[in-house]
């Protein structure tokens, strides 16, 4: 079995993967950038924690409530902001994320304020986290390969043409915004039941940026790319522990490099496929044959 360190790594990777998958559906498939998804994680985490501790709900139900609450708030926020053009939408999300953080700092009675909320039972084991991540991937995959996902791809490519062909652009964008918030809330609820003690500062602007950076690194519009991106962003720092303080610096450099060298990301607009990999290996084999 896994030791505590390995268990922790698996949980952190899986939890982040869920949040990144949500981001990937939103940003990769509609080009909306949300710098507020840590806020939805926070809402999910606190809702799940309170459900679990105060209301004594069973763990799966508590996490579900967290995800649902995040989705509900996203629905309300989206109704106001989803029509905004790119940059303005981004700023509204950024503001929202900060509002959530400050709000949870002030509502001491409910959330424990800046000191955090503790006494959450430990429920998110590596197995639970892994199961959730696989489930999240399967749901997201089906979502983007559904009629809805097709509509999102059309919007990404040409919003005006999409609308002219009968796609309700505002509704589709709102759907994907809510989808990403539900995923963030889901991740937050799981995270709370792993850490057992959460503070508002865990879900700050840095966390939102990390989610976006991971999505961009992995490649916009590619779910398998998101998996790859999450592995890189979450695991590399584990190998370079001593440099942890420079983490954000490395992210920044990595993103600049990606944008310069591979604007589509590590795996942009394509999915990893077994047959593709086999073909690639064969081609390598042939290349060797010709050289030799």
């Amino acid at each position: 079995m896994l030791n505590a360190f390995q268990e922790g790594v698996v949980v952190v990777v899986c939890v982040n993967l869920i949040a990144v998958l949500g981001m990937s559906v939103l940003t990769g498939f509609t080009r909306l950038f949300s710098f507020g998804n840590a806020g939805f994680m926070s809402i999910g985490a606190y809702t799940a924690a309170i459900c679990s501790v105060q209301l004594r709900l069973p763990f799966p139900l508590a996490v579900l409530c967290g995800a649902a609450m995040a989705g509900f708030i996203a629905f309300l926020l989206g109704s106001l902001t989803i029509r905004l053009r790119g940059d303005y939408f981004l700023i509204s999300c950024l503001g929202f994320g900060e509002c959530v953080r400050v709000l949870f700092n002030y509502t001491k009675g409910l959330t424990g304020g800046a000191n955090g909320y503790s006494g959450i039972p430990y429920r998110t084991t590596a197995a639970v986290a892994f199961f959730c991540a696989v489930l999240a991937f399967v749901i997201a995959w089906n979502f983007i390969h559904s009629k809805y996902g097709q509509s999102l791809s059309a919007i990404r490519e040409n919003e005006v043409a999409a609308a002219a062909n009968g796609i309700d652009v505002v509704r589709c964008k709102k759907m994907s915004f809510v989808f990403s918030a539900i995923y963030a809330g889901w991740a937050g609820g799981l995270y709370a039941h792993y850490l057992r003690h959460i503070t508002p500062a865990l879900f700050n602007l840095g966390k939102s940026s990390e989610l976006i950076i991971t999505t961009v690194l992995g490649g916009l519009g590619s779910l398998t790319g998101s998996v790859l991106g999450t592995l890189v962003v979450q695991l590399l720092p584990e190998f370079f522990r001593g440099l942890a303080e420079y983490r954000m610096l490395f992210y920044g450099i990595a993103v600049v490099l990606v944008i310069l060298v591979r604007p589509a990301g590590l795996y942009g607009y394509r999915e990893f496929s077994i047959t593709g990999a086999v073909r690639f290996v064969r081609r390598l084999g042939k290349g060797d044959g010709q050289d030799g």
Binding site: Q150, S153, E157, V160, A161, Y269
Partner: peptide, 8 residues
Amino acid sequence: GRQIFTKL
């Protein structure tokens, strides 16, 4: 100008 979806 047609406006077809080139990546679909």
